[in-house]
């Protein structure tokens, strides 16, 4: 009984969060932050890449 009630409440809260516009917005911002971090690092790595710095 206790486990079942807890599971029902947790499941409802979980689905409420996933369906809320606030969660979608923040998740999208997080995903963009992750993507921007990766792409920025990739481009800075390419700029400082040994193949481009090795000029003789």
């Amino acid at each position: 009984m206790t486990q079942a009630a807890l599971r029902i409440i947790a499941g409802k809260e979980f689905s409420d969060h996933l369906r809320s516009r606030r969660f979608h917005l923040l998740f999208a911002i997080l995903a963009v932050v992750a993507a921007v971090g990766m792409i920025t690092e990739r481009s800075s790595t390419r700029k400082t890449s040994p193949t481009t710095t090795r000029s003789r």
Binding site: L6, I8, I9, A10, G11, K12, E13, F14, H17, F23
Partner: peptide, 14 residues
């Protein structure tokens, strides 16, 4: 306690 634990678990899961 089931209510508060359930709310916390749902949020943590999300």
């Amino acid at each position: 306690d089931e209510v508060i634990n359930g709310k916390a678990l749902g949020g943590v899961g999300a």
